[in-house]
Design a binder for these strands. Structure first.
Length: 501
DNA sequence: CAACAAAGCGCG
DNA sequence: AAAGCGCGCTTTGTTG
């Protein structure tokens, strides 16, 4: 570990203590519900396995591999799909066939769709349901472990079990495990996270004026991406299209992906989800009407041809870096050149990273690390605040840019107001390099609910001891009061109490 | 048999 | 120069 400044050392020293307290608290599990869920998911797996075993595909599988045939053997599945059944393999073959979810979904076969579903349920059962169950202690709690020394980026990692990768993106899968994770008696689970943590921290490094303005104004930069990725007008950007453009284009590009790979990803999403325009026209038809009839080869060395989706994304990439965020683009170039000169670089939070790094690594690591350090600083402050004010609230998990707490119902408003203040006011006061607003978002589990049942709450409507509705747009940080809890003028709104952006 | 690698997939 | 980054966990496949 190489914290270069005393502040960096102290951050990890205090952070280690805060995290170990978190480990000791543990997370409460609904053990009976977990056991029931394991039975029910096992039933679903058996049902799907039976269906697969009744299919003509299994007939062929069995014929080829005889007694060795097993659904779990992906090598066999690859040979079955592409050698025996003659489906087109979407890549250049080297070694075994890749038979992951992406490949399977492009084939559009009932057999493959069922297979993917079964794999998801198997993953849920072994890694999460059984995995978490195996860590339950006699007190009915699960005490995971965190490390600040493993990740090369100076982030944290988590294990036994890993609380940082509990399913949520697939709502059905997420529900099955998260329903088993519950608050203590008379408590409520609360998850608070940073809005756009890595985008904000990246902006503190590259200081791209246009992006800084977007962040401060609350401008939605993913709408522009959707317009370029799907060749649509601003008014026709739906929530779904925006979401896919955000994940598969904007963020992918920020992390250093390039257009050929993004084109493959986006094209796959169009097919997998059957994406449509706002008018309900299938995306492929819409693109065809705009002269885009096929994906394009997307081969690393192949030329990009007009009339392909690959070419669309190439132009979108050009727009993003050469028109939209030109200063960010230049920062990457300069930052990497500086790293090549020195063989190392420093983070804004006082850590040094030594090579060898690719350009993407050198540009991504400091952002990933510093974004986490913002969270860790707030975690430490909140831990101190709980002790100082003798609160019963327990911080129970940390997930890169969010904190999960188990909060007695009577402390809920206090907790939300205090943590909100730490994130939005005290953090940017403590670290002057933060030049974007820091915004907190909170989700609260209603009484009697589980982690699955978390609901967004409006932090602007929370004050100490009670909640109130806000009539005029108020600053989210200080709820319109203009002062932070430390008594100083609120930082984001500069003491005006008015909504920022 | 154990130890390790690779594939695959879960999260931010 | 490389072709998104970081992690942990489970399963299958390989090696000695």
């Amino acid at each position: 570990m190489k914290p270069t400044t005393p502040e960096a050392y102290k951050l990890f020293h205090d952070g280690t203590l805060a995290l170990s307290r978190m480990e000791a608290h543990g997370i409460n599990i609904h053990t009976e519900r977990l056991a029931e869920t394991i039975v029910s998911v096992s039933g679903q797996i058996d049902t799907i396995a039976k269906e697969l075993h009744d299919s003509p595909e299994w007939e062929a599988w069995r014929k080829r591999f005889g007694m060795n045939a097993e659904l779990g053997k992906r090598q066999q599945l690859g040979i079955l799909l592409f050698d025996i059944l003659g489906h087109t393999y979407p890549y250049e073959k080297k070694g075994d066939y890749t038979v992951d979810e992406k490949v399977m979904s492009t084939l559009n076969l009932e057999f493959c769709n069922l297979y993917v579903r079964m794999q998801k349920l198997l993953k849920l059962r072994s890694t999460y349901l059984l995995g978490i169950q195996s860590h339950i202690t006699p007190d009915g709690l699960v005490h995971g472990t965190y490390s600040l020394t493993i990740p090369i980026t100076y982030r944290s990692s988590a294990f036994d079990p890993n609380w940082q990768n509990v399913p949520i993106r697939d709502p059905e899968i997420g529900k099955l495990i998260r329903r088993c994770i519950i608050p203590r008696e008379e408590h409520q689970l609360i998850e608070v996270d940073f809005k756009g943590a890595e985008v904000c921290v990246a902006a503190c490094y590259h200081k791209d004026q246009r992006m800084l303005r977007y962040i401060r104004d609350g401008y939605d930069m993913h709408v522009g991406s959707a317009m370029h990725c799907f060749l649509i007008e601003k008014a026709d950007v739906t929530k779904e299209l925006r979401q896919h453009a955000k994940g598969a284009f904007t963020f992918a590009a920020f992390y250093g992906d390039w257009y050929k790979s993004m084109a493959v990803g986006l094209w796959g999403l169009i097919e997998k989800h059957g994406l449509k325009t706002k008018q309900g026209i299938p995306m492929q038809d819409h693109l065809r009407s705009r002269g885009i009839g096929r994906r394009g080869l997307c081969a690393p060395k192949g030329d990009t041809v007009e009339g392909t989706y690959e070419h669309v994304i190439q132009k979108a990439e050009h727009w993003l870096w050469k028109e939209e965020f030109t200063q960010y683009d230049k920062w990457k170039k300069d930052w990497y050149a500086e790293y090549q000169k020195n063989g190392s670089f420093h983070t804004l939070t006082g850590f040094t990273l030594h090579g060898p790094f690719s350009k993407n690594d050198a540009c991504n690591y400091p952002v990933q690390g510093s974004a986490f350090h913002c969270l860790l600083w707030c975690l430490i402050e909140m831990t101190k605040e709980i002790a100082k004010q003798r609160k019963k609230t327990k911080l129970v998990a940390q997930i890169h840019d969010s904190i999960l707490a188990d909060v007695p119902t009577e402390e809920v408003d206090w907790y939300l107001a205090t943590l909100n203040d730490i994130i939005t006011c005290r953090l940017p006061e403590a670290w002057k390099w933060i030049i974007t607003p820091m915004i907190a978002e909170a989700e609260v589990v209603p009484v009697g609910g589980s982690w699955f049942d978390k609901e967004e709450v409006n932090l602007g409507a929370i004050e100490y001891g009670h909640s109130r509705a806000i009539a005029t747009p108020a600053c989210v940080a200080c709820a319109g009061s203009g002062t932070s809890t430390s008594g100083k003028p609120c930082t984001p709104c500069k003491g005006t109490g008015l909504k920022v952006g």
